[in-house]
Amino acid sequence: MSITVQNVSKYYGSQKALNNISFRVDTGEVVGFLGPNGAGKTTTMKIITTYLAASEGDVTVSGLPVEENRKAVRAKIGYLPENNPLYTDMQVIDYLRFAASVNGVKKEETDSRIKEMVVLCGLDSEKHKYISELSKGYRQRVGLAQAMIHDPEILILDEPTTGLDPNQIVEIRNLIRKMGEKKTVLLSTHILSEVEATCDRILIINKGEIVADGTAADLRKMSSAGDILHLKVGGADDPEKVLSVLSAQQNFLTEKTGESGFEFIINPDDIREAKKLIFSMCAENGWYIDSLTAKETKLEDIFRELTN
């Protein structure tokens, strides 16, 4: 149930779409695949799902090299391709039956699988409509239902939440979370809050290369920006004095912020150490801490830092 991608490169003519990328997705993991448009996310997914072949390198799914075992690999994967292509001239239920059949679901199990998917994806009220009549959110659910109909071990979802409204995004996210408990999931997106909410691990790809691989916390650590503290001091008369005391510290940088003059942004090397120092400093000078909040670096900043 794992996916390994090893030293994979892909050329489209003279253009290099993937440059020697390697990563693995282990059983039961939900991995988010991030990157700007044109970074190679879709190409990587197309290679894993056997739609395209890598120019160089090896891809294995559940230990099977994909190129020699296309049929077996396809049977293990549930795939939602980019832009969620659907046969819009079919009714939802017929489409799901067709998807079940081409995915090799046994005849006697087809009806129960379809029923399960309809319930899971909340398609009950829409199941007899033509897909062309559905809103984007419902189409997306049909796409997910199609991908999961044969109960695959691995789900590969190319931008599962594009074009959805915030409520729908939350629903789809919960659905993916639920699926992720039992399956290996690789999903691509460029919405950062989404990866944080759904994924165990994040891969960032830029210009065909993997630039980061780790949990959201790992990435924050990796980032030079680091976490910051927001401090508001009370009981002091002169803001300049507070600033000079704070600035005297070797292991963090202090900046003034806000209107009151007693608010500071502190960028420490070690956040816990800094909190201790701030406390004792205030105690020594007879000030008190009005507020002290740690602000995490936004994933957006890390993303921008890594992909610019």
Binding site: K46, Y51, R70, A75, P81, P85, Y87, V102
Partner: peptide
């Protein structure tokens, strides 16, 4: 044109 070929050609068949 619609991309459904990718759907079809990634299903367990030749």
């Amino acid at each position: 044109r619609t991309g459904t070929l990718e759907f079809l050609l990634t299903k367990p068949g030749e």
